[in-house]
């Protein structure tokens, strides 16, 4: 009997200890990230990050491949030579159904034939002669177009998921950014991106990518590549702005995204994207 009593007391005591231990675990302060962005009240501390959701639209039927966007991007963001936040690819499909893709220097200097001097002096009549991206017979180009490419700012981002230090993230207004003070340059994200839109900066040794010119769009300006586009092939806007042009275009145009089979949910849409574009 006495033993039983003792056992009960011991049990209550140890149960009390267990409860104290449990309370200790519960009492550990909740990490900040547990508080979701939607739980936070919009006040003075958050400027207008919840008022916008940015989206990009590229009309490949309008792109002339001048490379103005690539040059503007390099000037605006100080992108080092031979690295690109945005680039332009030229697709040419010949009579024998071969897809020829090129992007000399990312389209930085435009797409000029190498024998420019010959072009200017020769009296050759055939506009699709050698060096002009044309050809005869089975090399005749039957279909061609330019495809500007950049970060797709996916909603289901493969690149931010692999970041071990949470340096890469998606902002509340839908832009995928890299915090360079936290990035350790492991380049996991460079490998994870299926669109090849990230690179490791050769001097800073951190990941770098298109930010949709975050320093411009948050001041009411358009990204640099959009402002310089001479034909309006690049469009940018706010999905939360009911009267925006982009909203109308997205609602009325025939859209596609790059690599839809990967379910990355890109927020960079394309008009007139050919099936040969990868």
């Amino acid at each position: 009997m006495d033993k039983k009593k003792k056992n009960r007391r011991a049990f209550i005591k140890s149960a009390g200890h267990a409860l104290a231990g449990l309370l200790m675990v519960v009492a550990i302060p909740k990490p900040g990230w547990a508080q979701r962005i939607h739980d936070i009240e919009v006040g003075e501390e958050i400027p207008d990050w919840l008022d916008h959701y940015w989206v990009y639209l590229i009309d490949t039927t309008k792109c002339i491949g001048c490379g103005a966007c690539v040059r503007a991007d390099k000037r605006e963001n100080g992108v080092p030579p031979m690295f690109f936040r945005t680039w332009v690819e030229r697709y040419q499909i010949t009579e024998d159904n071969h897809v020829h893709v090129d992007s000399p220097d990312g389209g930085y200097g435009g797409f000029l034939p190498e024998d420019l001097a010959q072009l200017l002096t020769s009296a050759e009549k055939d506009p699709a002669g050698p060096g002009r991206g044309g050809g005869k017979g089975k090399n005749k180009v039957t279909k061609g177009f330019f495809v500007p490419k950049m970060c797709n700012h996916c909603r289901n981002t493969p690149c931010t998921q692999v970041c071990p230090v949470n340096a890469s993230y998606q902002s509340p207004d839908g832009v995928v950014l890299v915090d360079k003070t936290r990035c350790i340059g492991c380049s996991y994200c460079v490998q994870a991106c299926p669109y090849g839109s990230r690179y490791i900066h050769p001097e800073k040794h951190t990941a770098d990518k298109c930010t949709w010119c975050y320093h411009r769009i948050t001041k009411g300006l358009m990204p640099a590549c959009v402002t310089v586009c001479p034909t309006g092939a690049r469009k940018f806007g706010d999905l939360k702005d009911e009267s925006s042009e982009i909203k109308k275009l997205l609602a009325t145009q025939r859209l596609n995204v790059l690599k839809p089979e990967l379910n990355t949910e890109p927020f960079c849409f394309y008009i007139g994207l050919d099936q040969s574009v990868r």
Binding site: T61, G65, R90, G110, L112, P113, P127, R132, P230
Partner: peptide, 10 residues
């Protein structure tokens, strides 16, 4: 840069 003829241009 803009006005060179290319089959790929619109």
């Amino acid at each position: 840069t803009c006005h060179q003829y290319f089959p790929a241009r619109p």
